[in-house]
């Protein structure tokens, strides 16, 4: 990371911390803000948050790894999360998975070369009656078919 990038990030995090207050109970909203903006919470960002809240970097790391939706490395701009729980499974999640993998030419857990898509499985998100279901960033897609899923991916700009 360049020094200028670092100081920009520091300034940004200082701003966020000022807004929420520098106590440890504000850790989660602060992390969410960083996540929303950057898509991940980098090593340096975690250490800056720790410094400003006067806690240890490893405590921040503990929180970040606890939550499945938080990440420490830069990944795809679109994070595709396909439900792997039983209702969606029975509704045909496997076919969707294969179609998406073929379309993007990556496996689950991987990110495309152009950093556009990351593929992940998640557990039930309460859309069981409308499975198979997936989540792309904040949007839920239901009643998927392989064709529909690929169509949705193609529409991601």
């Amino acid at each position: 990371m360049l020094v200028s990038e670092k100081s920009a990030l520091t300034a940004e995090i200082e701003g966020i911390v000022n807004e929420y207050g520098n106590t440890r109970d504000n850790l989660l909203p602060i992390l969410q803000r960083i996540l929303n903006k950057h898509g991940h919470i980098s090593e340096f960002a975690q250490q800056e948050v720790a410094r400003l809240l006067d806690i240890h970097p490893v405590e921040v790391y503990g929180v970040v790894t606890f939550y499945g939706f938080m990440r420490v490395k830069e990944e795809g701009r679109y994070i595709v999360r396909l439900c792997k729980t039983i209702s969606c499974d029975l509704a045909g999640k496997e076919a969707i998975a294969r179609a998406i993998e073929r379309e993007l030419d990556i496996k689950f857990g991987e990110t495309t070369q152009d950093k556009k898509f990351t593929l992940e499985y998640i557990n039930c998100m309460g859309m069981c009656d409308a499975g198979p279901a997936m989540l792309i960033n904040d949007t839920v897609y239901t009643h998927l078919t392989p064709r529909k899923a690929i169509e949705i991916l193609k529409n991601c700009k």
């Binding site: 250490q47 970097p57 490893v58 790391y61 503990g62 790894t65 606890f66």
Partner: peptide, 17 residues
């Protein structure tokens, strides 16, 4: 402050930063 429990559930482990 070197060690903390990280991850969750059956993946929980004690790790460093």
């Amino acid at each position: 402050g070197v060690l903390e429990a990280t991850y969750r559930g059956d993946r929980t482990k004690i790790s460093t930063f």
